[in-house]
């Protein structure tokens, strides 16, 4: 199987210390709103900040947890959960959010945009 990995442009966002464990933060990256999460085990995840169900830019303010071990964020508007791994909505078929690449360089959080 071949996976096509597009070239990513990395955007510097903030110090890692600005991300509270199990809480999200919104960032403005290249004109898009991205929600960045730091899970309990130190993992970093980034998805679109706009909740596709309510249309409000609020996913970064949802509660972070897990469903059957899959890290999730629950939209604060109507409470659907989204997988932080692949962006799939776990409570509504056919709904998902974009997932972004995220990395730490020199203690700084960076988001990769294709």
């Amino acid at each position: 199987m071949t996976t096509v990995v597009p070239d990513l442009r990395w955007h510097d966002v903030c110090d890692l210390a600005r991300l509270l464990p199990e809480r999200g933060a919104a960032a403005l990256v290249d004109g898009r709103q991205v929600a960045i999460f730091r899970t309990h085990d130190g993992g970093l995840h980034a998805v679109d900040n706009i909740d596709p169900i309510s249309g409000a830019a609020v996913l970064s303010r949802g509660i972070v947890g897990d469903r059957g071990g899959v890290p999730t964020v629950a939209s604060p508007v109507y409470k659907e959960s989204f997988s932080l791994l692949d962006g799939r909505c776990l409570d509504a078929d056919g709904v998902s959010v974009t997932v972004y690449a995220v990395r730490i360089t020199d203690g700084r959080v960076q988001i990769g945009i294709p």
């Binding site: 509270l20 464990p21 199990e22 809480r23 899970t39 309990h40 949802g62 509660i63 972070v64 947890g65 897990d66 469903r67 059957g68 071990g69 890290p71 999730t72 629950a74 409470k79 959960s81």
Partner: peptide, 30 residues
């Protein structure tokens, strides 16, 4: 596991009812 939007606020509420300081103190914030 690591909780969800059901148990976390419920436990936050229990902790708050028991008078554990500001609701944003330490881990409670999350």
């Amino acid at each position: 596991g690591r909780g969800c939007d059901i148990c976390k606020p419920a436990i936050a509420s229990i902790l708050a009812s028991l008078g554990t300081g500001h609701v944003h103190d330490g881990e409670q914030a999350a």
